[in-house]
Simulated scan of single mutants.
Amino acid sequence: MTSRDRAFRGATAVVGIANTPFHKRGTATQSSAQLTLEAILAAAADAGIDAHDIDGFVSYANDDNEGLAIGAALGAKEIRWSTMVWGGGGGGVAAAVNAASAAVASGQADMVCVYRGISEADAGRQSYSKGHMGPLLSGHGVFAPAQICALRTQRMLEVDGVPASAMKALVQAAYHHAQNNPDAVAYGRPLDPAVYDDARWISEPLRLYDCSRENDAAGAVLVTTAERARELRQKPAYVLSGVQGAGPDWSESVENDLAYTSAGFHPAMVARLWEGAGVKPGEVDVVQVYENFSGPAVASLIDFGFVPKGPDAGRVMQFENLIAPHGSLPVNTAGGNIAEGFVHGFGLIVEAVRQIRGTSPNQVPDAALSLLLGGPMAPSVGATLFGSDAVL
């Protein structure tokens, strides 16, 4: 490990966070741009900064609102950085934070906003997936992410031997956490295990509650230097390490992947995350894992070494282990995409930061290492590890 490899560690921090309310898909009265601007202004207020001082913009998942347009609408004094992460939907959620951190750490910008907004009225459905459903898939009736992830999940269950109970436990944990989160769509709507078991198939082996919701909403977080972060209103959530991309035999390979049941986090990528942060998987306090569907989320936890492969996955993936405050592997502590709300996983960033601040609706005691996993089973995936002052 060279000094260059660790130059990223703790150089930047998230200082402002915000989600707008999660509206049922297609019901928002605001455009995606309006929702995005609302979230950015709320994040700026959270950080205690003037929104005009934001000089960088990053989004992902083919967001309809270019950074230059958002910056102009805000009346930014200067736009020094504007970029979009390629690679499908949730695969860019952590990568967007990494891109913002890279811009700040390299001096290209001072205060970068990461954002994502969806309003079906103007953004439509599945705008993020354009170009990712090639003719080999569509020619055989595969038109939706649920179908692709179902194929991979079925292989994980049948060939790898991961028990279906692992998926159920993840969903139960999400709904459990949502009951303590008044902002969650599933707040006040606990999930009875029997209801989960009896729910209709969406694409076997994925049932209704295995699938993420879609909402009209937006989110924003602000990234700045560690030095400035210490002077602002909120407790900084330092970016310790970040990885993104696609390994060999992945990316836009149209289902020819040898590692077919992987979430896409290949071993070299995982090793870089831990090496860059200088920590081990067992030291992580809490995980926010992108669950477009429950099966891929389980695969992410396996890829990162939190959960053993095969039948032994069921030993760790149990409801009691996955819930805050005292589970051994608390996950999706605000409800996640499945039970809090879905804006391509943006709420997972916000909750990862809340855990470091100590303000989560399901707080893990003294959380110092909070991991965000984005993807999974997308053409590109990513991860970001946040830390508190205690681990710098």
Rank of each mutant, 00 (worst) to 15 (best):
A246P: 03
L232G: 01
R272M: 15
G278T: 09
P236S: 03
N215T: 08
Q244E: 08
T261D: 01
P267I: 05
A218G: 10
G219K: 04
A259N: 11
R233V: 11
S262D: 04
G245E: 14
E227A: 11
L273E: 13
V239E: 05
P281G: 08
N215W: 00
L273I: 15
L240V: 09
L222T: 13
E275I: 12
D257M: 02
P281K: 08
S253K: 01
G247D: 09
H266K: 11
H266V: 13
A237C: 00
A237Y: 02
N215H: 06
G276P: 14
A277Q: 10
G264Q: 02
T225D: 09
G245D: 11
K235H: 01
A259K: 07
V221P: 01
N256F: 04
T261Y: 00
W250E: 00
A237Q: 00
G278F: 01
V243I: 15
A268R: 13
E231A: 08
P267N: 04
R230G: 01
G242V: 15
A277E: 13
A259V: 05
P248I: 13
D249Q: 12
G276C: 14
V243K: 12
E252N: 07
G242P: 03
E214P: 02
D216V: 05
A246R: 05
M269R: 14
A220Q: 06
A263P: 00
P248W: 02
E214I: 12
D257E: 02
L273T: 15
V223D: 06
R228L: 11
R230L: 10
W274D: 12
D257P: 00
L258C: 12
A218L: 08
G219R: 05
G219Q: 08
A277S: 14
S262V: 04
E275K: 14
S262H: 02
A271T: 15
A229L: 10
D257Q: 02
V270F: 00
G245Y: 15
S241V: 14
W274Q: 14
E255S: 03
P267H: 10
R233D: 05
A229W: 11
A268T: 14
L240F: 08
A277K: 13
R228V: 10
